[in-house]
């Protein structure tokens, strides 16, 4: 299953108003570490029911990146009830991604 790419307009419904927690992967196509971690994010999305996983392309959605003060990619942000509750910066191995969404 491909991970949903969300735009600024979709962010409200897909992330902020989502019923379950959502992990957002802020990335860009030119970013090597983002590409390295992309398959792991896909795997995580396919294996996880309790948490949604979406991606935000920071070149296409600079306002979202700015709003959430993303200044390095990949940045992973876990949203719960409309708020960013956890942030991890950098390409994480899968176990770390799992830890980020666990609770």
């Amino acid at each position: 299953m491909a991970v949903l790419h969300v735009t600024k307009d979709e962010f409200e419904t897909e992330v902020l108003q989502a019923k379950k927690p959502v992990l957002v992967d802020f990335f860009a196509d030119w970013c090597g570490p983002c590409q390295m971690v992309a398959p792991l994010v896909e795997q995580l999305a396919a294996e996880t029911e309790s948490v949604g996983v979406v991606k935000v392309n920071i070149d296409e959605e600079p306002e979202l990146a700015q709003q959430y003060k993303v200044t390095s990619i990949p940045t992973f942000m876990l949203f719960k009830n409309g708020e960013a509750v956890k942030t991890e910066i950098g390409a994480l191995p899968k176990a770390e991604l799992q830890k980020l969404i666990a609770e």
Binding site: G32, P33, M36, L40, A91, L92, P93
Partner: peptide, 14 residues
Amino acid sequence: LEEGIYGGQIINSP
């Protein structure tokens, strides 16, 4: 054994 993601420093080179 790798503590992070494999590939090393070179993954940052465009």
